[in-house]
């Protein structure tokens, strides 16, 4: 699992470089993310525009990361591809996360 991390202003921007978060990678994703988000930052944005596939294990891992953020910060997701968006919509998890169509203003993609 390849995650790129960058501080941009008050945002911790994490870019998933892999093209899937599935049963084979969900645990590693969750553990790496928990460590990354333990750094202080006002906001946490996860750029998922490279992720073409996410299954229920991947969804569970993203939820676990959101919970690891604690009560103040919420996990913001950006750039959900069609199949990934469908999983969030069907499970109604799209109501739980802040979801941006593309990177929020002021942010640029990881180099």
């Amino acid at each position: 699992m390849n995650l790129q991390t960058e501080h941009q202003g008050d945002v911790l921007l994490i870019t998933v470089a892999d093209d899937r978060i599935d049963a084979a990678s969900a645990i590693q994703f969750k553990e790496m993310m928990r460590e990354i988000v333990s750094e202080p930052s006002e906001r946490v944005v996860l750029d998922m525009s490279n992720v073409g596939f996410l299954d229920s294990s991947g969804l569970g891992a993203v939820v676990a990361v959101m919970k690891a953020l604690g009560p103040v910060r919420r996990l913001e997701l950006s750039g959900l591809t069609a199949t990934v968006e469908k999983v969030f919509r069907l499970t109604r998890m799209d109501t739980v996360f802040i979801i941006h169509k593309s990177l929020p203003e002021g942010l640029r993609h990881a180099s």
Partner: peptide, 24 residues
Amino acid sequence: ELPEIEAQEDLPEGGFGWFLIRSL
């Protein structure tokens, strides 16, 4: 069945698999 969505600290991390299979 879709797990209940409650407070953020109690969000379900599993139980989505059969919901997706039965839905699709």
